[in-house]
């Protein structure tokens, strides 16, 4: 199973339907493979674009409504593109008790976006997720593939800076 980041493919033009061939080749004929089909498609494109889903349905022999039904049921699937770095702030019990709400608020404040949104420069998307299973390091978050634990609102700015690059999504020093 591909766990590696597929950044190159991630931002592929949605008109490029090449990756679908390989995905359908691998899962297309398997019984009950709808979820892996969607997972692989999302890995390749970064999200489930409508045009891609239509093509996937046609080629793999599903109704578009089946795909849409499954894609909207599971939290993992996205119908909108995301930023370069997906920030997932854990809101599991331990993190909630340890102040995850303040962490999300601080990130939203620093990036000047709301939860679920992407910064205008396309660098960060902010999401809340349920338990990431690293409760002893609460509160924690994932930025892309990196885990940051034992967070404090005061430390958020520094962490975001590591990912902000030159474009400066993060607010400048006040």
């Amino acid at each position: 199973m591909a766990q590696e980041c597929s950044c190159d493919a991630r931002f592929a033009e949605t008109s490029d339907l090449g990756p679908l061939d390989d995905i359908i080749e691998r899962y297309g004929r398997e019984k009950g493979a709808l979820i892996p089909l969607l997972q692989e498609t999302q890995d390749a494109y970064g999200y489930l674009d409508e045009a891609v889903m239509r093509e996937l349905a046609r080629r793999a022999g599903y109704q578009l409504s089946q795909l849409y039904g499954v894609a909207t049921f599971f939290a993992q699937f996205r119908l909108k593109p995301i930023g370069e770095y997906l920030i997932k702030v854990c809101h599991g019990t331990a993190c909630h008790v340890a102040g995850a709400t303040q962490i999300t608020d601080e990130i939203a404040n620093q990036l000047d976006i709301k939860e679920g949104d992407t910064t205008p420069d396309g660098r960060f998307t902010l999401e809340s997720v349920m338990c990431l299973g690293a409760c002893s390091l609460s509160p924690i978050m994932l930025v892309g593939e990196d885990t940051h634990g034992r967070l404090k609102p005061t430390g958020i700015k520094k962490i975001l800076k590591q990912y902000a690059g030159d474009s400066g999504s993060s607010k400048e020093e006040e």
Partner: peptide, 21 residues
């Protein structure tokens, strides 16, 4: 079988539905 993020799938019958796609 990789889950796709639904708590209810920990329930046996929901899990089987999910495996069936």
């Amino acid at each position: 079988k990789k889950g796709a993020g639904a708590f209810v799938c920990g329930e046996e019958t929901a899990m089987m539905a999910s495996i069936e796609g």
